[in-house]
Amino acid sequence: MQQALFALSTIIIGVFGCVAYFYFSNLLLDRMCPAKGPNAGRNINRANAIRPWLFVFPALAILSIYLLYPVFSTAYLSLHDSGGDFIGVGNYTWLAQDEKFRESLVNNLMWLLVVPAASTFFGLVAAGLTDRIKWGQLAQSLVFMPMAISFVGAAVIWKFIYDYRGDNQGEQIGLLNALVQAFGGDPQAWITLPFWNNFFLMAILIWIQTGFAMVILSAALKGISEETIEAAYLDGASPLQVFFKIKIPQIWGTIAVVWTTITVTVLKVFDIVFAMTNGQWGTQVLANLMYDWMFRGSPDFGRGSAIVVVIMLLVTPVMVWNIYNAHKESR
């Protein structure tokens, strides 16, 4: 009861506070720059220049607090050690020498090279194959389905696919091992296979992101003028040539947007690694390493924050390019 009252009063104060803010700040502006007297014209211009800022100020302020403040606070933390003492770039020099960090960086790079490329490729193939056929819609919904599953959920599903039972643990229940055995091979503990286990984890994200890529690219393919495609057929192009020489060049911008969007997701990959291996057996990635330092064992906020800053620096240029491309597309 008390909570409900509290919530209600918060809402009322918030709403009326907003209204009061807009009303009184507006009034104040009108008082300060009256639209009459000797300087009426100048005052009106000045008031018009200030008024938009007055109105966006609350939103701007809240955005800054919730988006910008954490950035600076993280950067600030990254310059301090676990005890809170300032140590300059100490955490970064530590990072440069840390074995696990280097492993994470290499793994992230591999993810970066493989996942966006594979997702976009499979998405493009799926979009191209399902374009303009009757049951294409159905096929598309099936490919898109994994998008609805959370990364952790997907990880659990794939854990069963890669599952391995030791010698005295009974029959194999993993799908992959079942396939391997069916072809006469020996079952493996897939997620502990050094190096290759990285790719088994990547497969999960590709499985999820292909649906995303397909949906966006399929919309782009539908936007291509039917007549240019017919003209290409008349010009003697085969379906493959039409796809590669007419369709793909016309959706390059969209491909770039899809690619970079997935790239950003990949740079932040955490859940899958966390749930599947927790960074063991050589599968560590930056986000999970950060989590380890932040919240595990004896937490070191400084080192964790330093890793966050590195991730952010990696994401920012991709993000900028992504937004630039998306803008170009929507023009």
Binding site: E227, T228, A231, I246, P249, Q250
Partner: peptide
């Protein structure tokens, strides 16, 4: 064939 919408390859 010459199409009403020209159907030129835009790229």
């Amino acid at each position: 064939m010459v199409f009403q919408s020209y159907a030129l390859y835009p790229h």
